[in-house]
Design a protein around this nucleic acid. Structure first.
Lengths: 199, 199
DNA sequence: ACGCCAATCTTAACAATGTAAACATAGCGA
DNA sequence: TCGCTATGTTTACATTGTTAAGATTGGCGT
């Protein structure tokens, strides 16, 4: 399997793969260009044939992470009975993915695609997650909801899962899957919830 | 005002101050130990008389940031008519502070005090913000709310403001103070909001 | 008032990092 | 087969965090 010829064959993919592995193994999120090259069995400057600089390498890693996240979200949504449950499942999948891959998630947030100036809400006309979020919000909001109300709801949904992920990773919220799912599920009725689910 | 004697007098405070200044000036959050020392007009290794390593210096900066944040939150809450408005004001102050000081806020989240294992909810018996958050939640929740429901509500509140701050800083949500305030204010009734504030 | 001591700051040095420049290898088309 | 170009390598440099050894000085006991 190992080609140890002078030319590697497909180095770019190999670098991304070892990068993901290092992010999985080391708790802290800071990986080095030299470290990735060394672990791939290649010399440091070889990286520059495939990435203009370290930032580009990390950007590629973040991009790979986003695709994994989207896959996980789609898998979680698939097979849910109604749209609302599917929507909540995507939110829970977001948090669970982040908690399961803290270093990678950190990179992803550090290299989050900043939205263009033209769009009022930035999350985001280009990404799969952005459009599906908007669709779901629009479908689940009450009938007469205006554009602005939908924007706010979308922002709240994004902020909740994103913030929750960070809090669990940071250790401010205990890593309890039931608690996480409940926090996402009960989004929207925190002042109205009288029943306390004793499971 | 400038002592240029061999001994600086109060170097530790000076280092923290220039650290805060650098975080304010440079957009990206990564400041170096040598950079702080150089800008303070002192040699790099002098830092080690006051901090065991770079991490300790950054930790002190984060700590200073938290105190500023708490002050801002208290100032925002002061003078509000009822408790609910005061509570929402603290949430808005959190986001506004983060957006106004993105690099410092990044450090703060990176060095967030992880909660001890013993407490179910981690935010937190030690910090001012933690207790006031719990008090407010308990006071604003409906009468028969159980402990778990309060925990979930507190987590949701923290996650919302924290995530919102990150999204605005990251550029995924436009930096519009009215939008931010609305997203915090309308927390809890995203599916029930029919009226759209055309302000 | 004097002397020394311990706290504070300095310079010198080391390993590791990101990156640029110059050189080496080999796969592939003429 | 020859040579060109894509792909790696070695070397070198500036910068960083950190340690070790030496310089400076404010303050305390006598």
């Amino acid at each position: 399997m190992k080609k140890q010829s002078y030319h590697h064959g497909d180095l770019r993919s190999a670098l991304v793969e070892t990068g993901l592995r290092l992010l999985r193994e080391k708790g802290d999120g800071d990986i080095g260009l030299r470290e990735v090259a060394r672990e791939t069995g290649v010399s440091a400057t070889a990286v520059y044939r495939h990435f203009p600089d370290k930032d580009a390498l990390l950007h590629a890693l973040a991009r790979a992470g986003y695709e994994k996240l989207f896959d996980a979200q789609e898998a979680a949504a698939a097979g849910k009975p109604d749209r609302e449950q599917a929507f909540r499942a995507t939110g829970q999948a977001y948090v669970h993915f982040a908690v399961a891959n803290p270093a990678l998630f950190g990179l992803m947030t550090a290299y989050m695609p900043a939205a263009g100036e033209e769009e009022a809400l930035a999350l985001s006309t280009e990404s799969r997650a952005g459009v599906s979020l908007r669709e779901n919000i629009a479908a689940l909001m009450p009938e007469g909801s205006g554009r602005r109300a939908q924007d706010i709801a979308a922002i709240q949904a994004m902020a909740l899962v994103h913030g929750l992920a960070q809090l669990v990773i940071g250790g401010q919220v205990p890593n309890d899957p039931e608690l996480i799912d409940a926090a996402v599920d009960q989004f929207g009725d925190w002042r109205h919830s009288h029943a306390q689910a004793e499971s």
